[in-house]
Design a protein around this nucleic acid. Structure first.
Lengths: 198, 198
DNA sequence: GTCTATACATCGATAGAC
DNA sequence: GTCTATCGATGTATAGAC
């Protein structure tokens, strides 16, 4: 078979024990995700991604043979991230609801960047991106339901989280419905009372 | 000034009293909106829009000199629709909260189609589309706040509505968090109790 | 007001040198 | 594994006939 590009379906292939700086492959994936999340699906051209990753277009295409392969790359990384998040949600000190709401607020985490990037792909009618979002939502909903009991309350909390992401992805940053830490504290208190009082 | 295309900034120019069938200009706008909402921003090319509207590309470009003008067209129509919606929300028999939640659920209305279309433009990094969404949100929030009193409760209801639209726009239809009429009835009851019990 | 033909830019992807 | 050069397709927009 000779020399082949690393299979696109190899997620979490962490850098070799000694290698400090990230591989070109990872830098390309990061660049693509950043351009998607910070700008738009249209802005994330092969040229732009290559430039941001510091490689040539040919270099990029060695690692990812097509744009579809590039999308597969971010989707694969996402399935790892979502597993981590579900685990953390389950083990969260103040419970899954608290964790879910607090992590739905705009931040600059890798996780959020990945979600926004995938939301852009979903808007661009990529069926795999839509499925990935739908699947993540099912996972969250499951844990929420275990935590609060009532399915309708769980779904309502889910919608609130969805709303926050929607705002992050679509609106100018200054226009978020919830802004600061205090808002979240209050919201969490409100929802908790709401979840219990039913 | 001679023959000029009708100004793009002339919204609600309803069809002349006798004209039953819609003008080419309106059909083009509808086609663009439909392709945006039903497919994607990328799918809404001039060729595709012209074909769906039943005109040639040249014919389309007579009415809208550029893609930007096309976007202006749907944004202008949207400002009319949002005014109508706010008015209806204020006068709704069962109150603004009930109205807001029920109209946030996926339907096939012209209004929803416009919102999803503009959400697609916003995702494509069109600043005017983002502003239009942010502005609509402010209007809704204002009315919600008058209705429920508590600003945090109002914002929470807003987020629930946002979540519903996010699901409509991004997810495969079968995966909506809320599905049928019963869900909405229950949700409305739940939120009402929630809004009062604070 | 609507059409055809075409110019021009850009994007994804291939070929092949190093 | 990374580069340059280039091809082919597609998208926006213009020019000009009818």
């Amino acid at each position: 078979m000779g020399v082949m590009p690393p299979a696109a379906s190899t997620p979490s292939s962490s850098p070799a024990p000694g290698a400090a700086q990230s591989s070109a492959r990872d830098r390309v994936l990061d660049a693509y995700e950043e351009l998607l999340a910070e700008q738009s699906e249209r802005a994330a051209t092969l040229d732009a991604v290559a430039a941001r990753a510091g490689v040539s277009k040919g270099g990029l295409l060695y690692h990812f043979a097509s744009k579809e392969a590039l999308a597969s790359g971010v989707l694969d990384r996402f399935s790892d991230l979502i597993e981590d998040d579900i685990r953390r949600m389950r083990e969260a000190e103040d419970g899954p609801v608290d964790y879910f709401l607090r992590t739905s607020i705009p931040t600059d985490s890798r996780f959020e960047r990945a979600i926004v990037a995938i939301a852009r792909l979903a808007q661009a009618a990529d069926p795999r991106a839509r499925d990935a979002l739908a699947s993540a939502q099912r996972r969250w909903l499951e844990v929420l339901q275990e935590a609060v009991g009532d399915p309708l309350v769980a779904r309502t909390i889910m919608l609130i989280g969805d709303g926050m992401y929607y705002n992050t992805a679509l609106l100018p940053a200054a226009n978020n419905v919830l802004r600061d830490e205090t808002d979240i504290d209050d919201l969490v208190t409100l929802i908790r009372r709401f979840a219990e009082g039913r």
